[in-house]
């Protein structure tokens, strides 16, 4: 009986202490009303091999030392993708040079068949000359989408048409300079909010 009480007491104290400590560690400078879902522990990305819009290798090394915003989509997407890229263009306009130096934007096309690098280059650089288009083989796309936790899938073309739609997650993902997923911006997106939140995350992390 005495032993049970002792174990319960120890367990309770550890729990309270653990909760207090974890709160203390996380409370830092990150505001409670942050307009993104922040992952305190981060989520490491698995190694992948993709190709950028200049035909160069795009792997984990390309995420080092930068904060990377990632959006998944395809260039034939009329509504969601151009709207998201336009918002990122506006967010880029709102950031100062020092902040921008630490950031990059990557648009990953999950529709590699219709989005070869040359086409991706024209597409993403239309929104901003510094934006990077990336695509790759299905197994590699599955690695990056799988480790981030976003989804995509192809719809059957409508009868008599060769055109097909691609369903895809519409979150903007933020990856830290150690290639850990750090934050998720859910739609509907707002340029002002993204720029502000990014700055808050930067000052918390630096």
């Amino acid at each position: 009986m005495k032993q049970t009480i002792l174990i319960t007491a120890i367990a309770t104290i550890s729990l309270v202490l653990g909760l207090w400590l974890s709160q203390k560690l996380d409370s830092g400078k990150l505001p409670t009303d942050l307009e993104a879902t922040y992952l305190p522990q981060g989520k490491p990305l698995r190694p992948f091999q993709l190709v950028d819009h200049n035909g160069n290798k795009f792997d984990l090394a390309r995420l080092k030392n930068k904060w990377t915003f990632v959006f998944f989509g395809y260039t034939n997407c009329p509504d969601v993708c151009p709207a998201a890229l336009k918002i990122m263009q506006l967010a880029w306009d709102k950031m100062d040079a020092k902040t921008l130096k630490q950031a990059q934007l990557v648009f990953v096309s999950v529709d590699a068949d219709r989005d070869p690098p040359a086409k991706l280059k024209e597409y993403v650089t239309y929104f901003h000359p510094d934006f990077i288009g990336v695509t790759g083989k299905p197994d590699q796309l599955d690695i990056i989408t799988g480790s981030i936790g976003v989804l995509y899938g192809f719809e059957d073309p409508e009868p008599g048409s060769k055109e097909y739609h691609v369903n895809h997650s519409a979150q903007i993902i933020l990856i830290d300079p150690a290639s850990n997923m750090r934050a998720v911006f859910s739609p509907p997106h707002d340029a002002e909010s993204i720029a502000r939140t990014f700055k808050q995350i930067l000052s918390y992390s630096n």
């Binding site: 260039t75 034939n76 997407c77 009329p78 151009p82 024209e122 597409y123 239309y126």
Partner: peptide, 12 residues
Amino acid sequence: SPEAPPVTRVMA
């Protein structure tokens, strides 16, 4: 209608 990138074959 938002102006679309030159390679785009579909606009909204």
